[in-house]
Amino acid sequence: MEPVVRIASRTVVLPADNVDTDQIIPARFLTGTRTDGLGDSLFADWRRDGAGELRPDFPLNRPEAQGARILVAGANFGCGSSREHAPWALTDYGFAAVVSPSIADIFKGNAVRNGLVPVEIAPSAHRELLARPGTEIVIDVEAGTVSLPDGGSARFELPPFARRCLLTGRGPLDFLLEREPAILRYEQGHDDVAAAR
């Protein structure tokens, strides 16, 4: 995982609320055993029609959206299935951050562990971004700020550990592996855990 410190990009706006992970990547694309190559299946049934042709009116397909790395989405983004294929598809497509008034719990954690920045901002700031698709903004992960089209900025919170994961590119697995002695002590101190061994 590469460290993510600052993202400067145009936005793509997908205003619908409650975008579920079945929309982000439909289940029929989950039959692989790898984490890469899923970008083409991102929003597959919204991006393409029944014949597989790109729908020109879908926000991601518009010419001005090409190369944009920040997705501005509606509330409760990423609800539903726990499939990590959702952030895998978003990052493989080229997105580095999702900005929403609220992001679903499992998706948020999955995003952080894949270097995709989950940015939850106040509804008023979100409305500004919704109203100005394609605007150039800067997400500062260290400061926890998003620049807004009117020149102001909005704050977003991340748990300190999640922020550090993003900034350093080091995930929780390393942290847990370093806690092996404590984990072993826990196991030894819990009869039922030890007994199962």
């Binding site: 990590e84 499992i106 894949n114 697995l173 942290f175 847990l176 592996l177 806690r179 092996e180 984990i183």
Partner: peptide, 17 residues
């Protein structure tokens, strides 16, 4: 429910953050 990276964490350490 957990994501696949977390599945790996649990497989390797039996723990989650």
């Amino acid at each position: 429910g957990i994501g696949t990276t977390e599945v790996a964490q649990v497989l390797a350490t039996q723990c989650l953050l």
